[in-house]
Amino acid sequence: KWTITVQGEEAIKWAIKVAEARNLDYTVHIDGDQAHITIE
């Protein structure tokens, strides 16, 4: 299990796209213009 933090709307969209493309189980916690994405 690991967490990445991305900043900015484009980076958030990209990170989610990558997680979905790899069929990963993930949760997103949005904090202002940052998102913390935890991959199970």
Rank of each mutant, 00 (worst) to 15 (best):
K1R: 13
K1M: 09
K1W: 12
K1N: 10
K1L: 07
K1T: 10
W2T: 05
W2L: 08
W2Q: 03
W2N: 03
W2K: 04
T3I: 12
T3D: 03
T3W: 10
T3R: 07
I4K: 01
T5L: 09
T5D: 04
T5A: 04
T5N: 04
V6N: 00
V6K: 00
V6R: 00
V6E: 00
V6H: 00
Q7R: 11
Q7F: 14
Q7G: 04
Q7T: 13
G8F: 12
G8Y: 05
E9A: 12
E9Y: 10
E9K: 10
E9R: 09
E9D: 10
E9G: 07
E10Q: 09
A11G: 08
A11R: 07
A11Q: 09
A11V: 06
A11E: 07
I12M: 06
I12D: 01
I12E: 02
I12V: 05
W14L: 13
W14D: 11
W14T: 11
A15G: 02
A15E: 03
A15C: 13
I16A: 01
I16F: 02
I16P: 02
I16R: 03
I16K: 03
I16W: 02
K17D: 07
K17Y: 08
K17I: 10
K17R: 09
K17N: 09
V18S: 06
V18A: 09
A19T: 03
A19H: 01
A19P: 00
A19V: 14
A19Y: 04
E20H: 06
E20R: 09
E20A: 08
E20D: 06
A21V: 05
A21P: 00
A21S: 11
A21D: 09
A21F: 07
A21G: 06
A21Y: 10
R22I: 14
R22A: 13
R22Y: 15
R22T: 14
R22S: 15
N23M: 09
N23W: 07
N23T: 03
L24P: 02
L24T: 03
L24G: 04
L24S: 03
L24M: 06
L24V: 05
L24E: 03
L24I: 06
D25M: 14
D25T: 14
D25N: 13
D25F: 13
D25I: 15
Y26G: 01
Y26A: 02
T27A: 06
T27P: 00
T27G: 02
V28I: 14
V28D: 00
V28Q: 02
H29L: 13
H29F: 13
H29E: 13
I30T: 04
I30P: 02
I30M: 12
I30S: 04
I30N: 04
D31Y: 11
D31F: 13
D31H: 11
D31Q: 09
D31G: 03
G32P: 02
G32W: 08
G32E: 04
G32Y: 03
G32V: 05
G32H: 05
D33K: 07
D33C: 10
Q34G: 07
Q34K: 14
H36T: 15
H36K: 12
H36R: 12
I37N: 00
I37C: 04
I37R: 00
T38F: 05
I39E: 00
E40P: 04
E40Q: 13
E40I: 15
E40H: 15
E40F: 15
E40D: 11
